[in-house]
Simulated assay, not measured.
Amino acid sequence: MKIHIEALHFTCIIGILEHERQNEQKVIIDVAIEYDFEDNVFINYAEVAEFIKTDMQNKKYLLIEDALQDLSRALKNKFSKINTLYLKITKPSILPDCKVSVSNITNFQS
């Protein structure tokens, strides 16, 4: 099975610039989780979404890359059935003429 969470948006502290450390900014998270569904043993997508939001707001990351790596590990620890995880973090307002994103795919089976 694959869970898709698209355009999860909230505000948090993320970035290395002075104004990013002082003011929350909007982020958009896209997630895809592959896992083995067995007899009603499933991953609750509402719990995943809330976990991501809470983690990002509590940890106040400097770099998107750090957030991706840390969040991947934290999600796997919380939801052990995850086999493959795609995460994309977008900062839609950091540059005036584009959205900036960083993404990563983690295969926990290898």
Rank of each mutant, 00 (worst) to 15 (best):
Glu20Asn: 04
Ala46Arg: 14
Asp30His: 15
Val31Lys: 05
Asp39His: 14
Glu20Gly: 05
Phe51Arg: 08
Val31Cys: 10
Phe51Ala: 08
Glu47Ile: 01
Gln25Trp: 01
Leu17Tyr: 05
Gln22Trp: 05
Ile52Gly: 09
Ala49His: 05
Ile43Gln: 09
Asn40Pro: 01
Lys26Cys: 11
Phe51Met: 06
Lys53Trp: 03
Glu18Asn: 14
Ile29Gln: 02
Val27Tyr: 04
Ile28Lys: 06
Asp36His: 13
Glu18Gln: 14
Val48His: 05
Asn23Pro: 00
Lys53Pro: 09
Asn40Tyr: 11
Ile29Leu: 10
Glu38Cys: 09
Glu34Val: 04
Ile29Val: 15
Leu17Glu: 08
Glu38Phe: 08
Ala46Pro: 00
Glu50Val: 10
His19Leu: 00
Ile28Ser: 08
Glu20Tyr: 07
Leu17Asp: 03
Ile29Met: 06
Phe42Arg: 13
Tyr35Asn: 03
Asn44Ser: 12
Glu24Ala: 10
Glu50Leu: 11
Glu34Thr: 09
Leu17Asn: 07
Glu24Val: 08
Phe37Arg: 08
Gln25Ile: 04
Tyr45Leu: 15
Lys53Gly: 06
Tyr45Ser: 13
Glu20Trp: 06
Arg21Trp: 06
Lys53Phe: 07
Val31Trp: 01
Phe42Thr: 15
Glu50Asp: 15
Val41Ser: 09
Asp39Pro: 02
Leu17Ser: 02
Ile43Thr: 09
Glu34Lys: 10
Ala49Ile: 11
Lys26Gln: 15
Val48Tyr: 05
Asn40Asp: 15
Val48Leu: 09
Phe42Glu: 14
Asp30Asn: 15
Asp36Phe: 12
Tyr35Ser: 03
Ala32Cys: 13
Ile28Arg: 02
Tyr45Gln: 13
Gln25Val: 04
Asn23Cys: 01
Asp39Val: 11
Glu24His: 08
Phe42Asn: 15
Ile28Trp: 01
Ile28Asn: 04
Val27Lys: 03
Glu34Trp: 10
Val48Arg: 04
Glu47Lys: 13
Glu20Lys: 04
Tyr35Val: 03
Glu38Gly: 00
Glu47Ser: 12
Phe42Val: 14
Glu38Met: 04
Ile16Asn: 03
Ile16Cys: 08
Asp36Arg: 12
Ile43His: 06
Asn40Ser: 13
Ala49Met: 07
Glu38Lys: 14
Ala49Tyr: 03
Leu17Arg: 04
Ile29Asp: 01
Ile28Gln: 02
Glu50Gln: 14
His19Phe: 10
Ile43Ala: 08
His19Ala: 02
Ile52Met: 11
Glu50Trp: 00
Glu20Cys: 09
Glu20Ser: 06
Arg21Pro: 01
Asp36Pro: 00
Asp36Leu: 14
Lys53Val: 09
Glu34His: 08
Gln22Ser: 14
Val31Tyr: 00
Ile33Phe: 05
Gln25Arg: 12
Glu34Arg: 10
Arg21Thr: 10
Glu50Ser: 12
Tyr45Val: 14
Val41Pro: 00
Ile29Cys: 11
Lys53Met: 10
Gln22Asp: 15
Glu38Trp: 02
Phe51Thr: 09
Tyr35Trp: 07
Asp39Ile: 11
Val27Arg: 02
Ile43Asp: 07
Asn44Ile: 05
Asn23His: 13
Glu34Gly: 00
Val41Gln: 13
Val48Pro: 01
Phe37Val: 01
Ala46Phe: 12
Arg21Gln: 15
Asn23Trp: 05
Asn44Tyr: 03
Val31Pro: 00
Val48Thr: 03
